[in-house]
Design a binder for these strands. Structure first.
Length: 141
DNA sequence: GCCAACGTTGGC
DNA sequence: GCCAACGTTGGC
């Protein structure tokens, strides 16, 4: 891991693409992003950066960890070729999925940017926030 | 370049 | 299912 590593949180609606599918695939494109801030974050990603895999909808929990496995390339689901995607590789499942409500109650996380900007599908976390969520999830890298 | 109208996300 | 918050679009 390089010293410039950053940490990210990737949101997905599990009806659309869920952790089980990520586990089966091992490596999958993270495509379909259509938001400028999320795109900016994708361009800032580097291979090897760690990302949480978060389920929105009914679950609202961090369920696992993936790592960035490619540079950005054109999103195959974008017919106009304007949006990028990246590949993500499965790292591990959370022993204990970390629910949004616990993160909101946690003193380390309650004011985190990724919780305040609710609509951002690719958000950046600090190392402290990343480590804290791993602790709450009883999961070590 | 402003801003009203509209669309979408995602928690509740 | 509702709606707040936020993003995008388009008329001016």
């Amino acid at each position: 891991m390089s010293s410039s590593s950053r940490f990210w949180l990737l949101k997905t609606e599990p009806n659309c693409f869920c952790w089980d599918e990520q586990l089966k695939a091992g490596i999958e494109p993270w495509d379909g992003v259509r938001n400028f801030q999320a795109r900016k974050n994708m361009y800032a990603m580097e291979v090897g950066d760690l990302c949480f895999f978060y389920h929105t909808g009914k679950e609202r929990s961090v369920v696992g960890i993936v790592e960035v496995a490619s540079a950005t390339y054109p999103d195959p689901t974008d017919s106009e070729g304007k949006w990028p995607c990246i590949d993500v590789k499965t790292v591990k499942s959370f022993k204990n999925p970390v629910a949004l409500k616990w993160m909101k109650m946690d003193s380390v996380l309650e004011n985190a940017d990724f919780l305040r900007q609710g609509r951002l599908s690719v958000a950046e976390l600090t190392k402290e926030e990343f480590d804290r969520i791993c602790l709450l999830g009883e999961t070590q890298i």
